[in-house]
Amino acid sequence: MKVLVPVKRVIDYNVKVRVKSDGSGVDLANVKMSMNPFDEIAVEEAIRLKEAGKAEEVVAVSIGVKQSQETLRTALAMGADRAILIVAADDVHTDIEPLAVAKILKAVIDEEAPGLVLCGKQAIDNDMNATGQMLAALTGWSQGTFASELDIEGDSATVTREVDGGLQTIKIKMPAIVSVDLRLNEPRYASLPNIMKAKKKPLDEKTAADYGVDTAPRLEIVKTSEPETRKAGEIVGSVDELVAKLKEAGAL
């Protein structure tokens, strides 16, 4: 079985996000970028499937600016076998919308014929949480979202899903799209020999046009704003005073 893992280049989770002064989005100029953490979990799971003998090949794919090849090299250094970069934007601020991404991924699936797609449940930049589901709709494959456990046996997969209020376990038919949640695994860090090997692994470069997909945005961002800053607290002298204040604020 071949496993396809889509990975997205996003602003590093350690970076303090700054909104552009015109409110059109987040400032990404000269900012550290990394692989979306949920996608790292997907890559890790795919490599574990390969190590367990349940997958033969792990193919990482990224759609975005040319610099996404760094993200793909990270996936290769973790243990993916080869990578496909689909250049769909010139400006780092261009975010390709989930439907366009899903359409391109559908075309990649038609070409690569994987038995499983493992993707992050959402990207930490726009939190859309849509690509996996849209891809399942386009392919007509089964979907298992928010996976915190995954077990593949023959032509079916058992997926434990993190749903509101608990866990739900479902059995789905393969091929399938599985979107992964935080607790599925802990991704490994790349070793130096693997970083060196990754530099020699194949990385194909294509464009969105090669797949005949129009990536022009359908959504318009009206405004981006920073969260309100936390207001100063107040020190109270006793528990009674605390309770009174909480009541006053309508919290009790």
Binding site: D12, N14, K16, K32, E70, R73, A190, L192, I195
Partner: peptide
């Protein structure tokens, strides 16, 4: 703010 990615970012 971290430095922008340099050529040794993978390392």
């Amino acid at each position: 703010q971290d430095h922008e990615n340099d050529e040794f970012q993978d390392i």
